[in-house]
């Protein structure tokens, strides 16, 4: 089946073929890693050591360079899983299902990082490690959704069945996650500050903070891409091994 790689690519969907995906992802992965380390290194060092302290929050504000990007990726990872699940259910591309599976632990970890850095930041700011603030609560609920999704993947033996069921759960879960978000806001108006970075950045934050923050967000995004690629490649290799073993035992 290696003849796939001889033809020129005619459509984006061809990368849904595992063989093609492996070839392409293997090529771009080193570049993603390099770009990721560069962005994170520059962004975080700049942010931590070469920006002035906030006049109100002091040096604690610098945790923002970890907190905001991880929170951003925690949500985007779930969104990516939703898209990948839909692609799997509609077009039955294995790579898509496996990418969703690979993204889940990364997203869950990002959620934990966001919660943890939030707690560390919240302690000096609000005087408490945890507050049932809508944003914090939403992230905790999102973490629970990640855990349920991962547990379902882990519990089902047949790979295609697992992909189908987790995709259905991801779609239904997305709806309920959004519902939970609004329910939680309704339930408790909190003390979390509004979005720190918005499109009209001038209102909230000055350039000194903005540039390193953008770099760290980009770095976290690249880190996510790199980890998902690695995870997907591992899953594909696992599936390939299993297919080979099934074939061997069938002979």
């Amino acid at each position: 089946m290696s003849d796939h790689s001889l033809r020129p690519v005619s459509s984006l969907w061809e990368f849904a073929n595992p063989v093609r995906f492996m070839a392409l992802s293997g090529k771009i992965l080193p570049f993603v890693w390099v770009a990721c380390v560069a962005c994170l290194g520059v962004g975080l060092v700049w942010g931590f050591f070469f920006t002035p302290d906030d006049y109100r929050q002091g040096s604690t504000v610098k945790i923002i360079y970890l907190h905001v990007p991880s929170a951003l990726m925690a949500i985007n990872a779930w969104f990516m899983m939703l898209v990948a699940s839909l692609i799997w259910l509609i077009r039955r591309h294995h790579v898509s299902a496996l990418a969703a599976r690979a993204a889940a632990p990364v997203g869950a970890t990002m959620t934990v990082i966001a919660l943890f850095t939030g707690a560390v930041w919240g302690q000096p700011m609000w005087g408490t490690w945890w507050e049932w603030d809508p944003r914090l609560t939403s992230f905790l609920v999102l973490f629970l959704f990640y855990l349920g999704y991962l547990a379902l993947w882990a519990a089902i033996e047949d790979a295609d069945t697992a992909a189908d069921l987790t995709s259905v759960l991801c779609i239904v879960g997305s709806v309920f996650a959004v519902l939970s978000r609004y329910a939680v806001v309704f339930w408790n108006q909190g003390l979390h500050q509004g979005a720190t970075f918005s499109m009209d950045k001038e209102e909230n934050i000055s350039n000194v903070f903005w540039y390193p923050a953008v770099l760290s967000m980009l770095g976290f995004g690249l880190l996510f891409v790199a980890l998902v690629l690695v995870g997907t490649r591992t899953e594909i290799r696992l599936r390939r091994t299993r297919a080979l073993m099934a074939r061997a035992s069938a002979e």
């Binding site: 089946m1 039955r92 591309h93 294995h94 594909i236 599936r239 080979l244 074939r247 002979e251």
Partner: peptide, 17 residues
């Protein structure tokens, strides 16, 4: 009975080979 690997349809794990 199929003597493996006669099929190449995308719905099989064979797609991974």
């Amino acid at each position: 009975k199929l003597d493996a690997p006669a099929l190449t349809a995308s719905d099989f794990d064979e797609a991974f080979l």
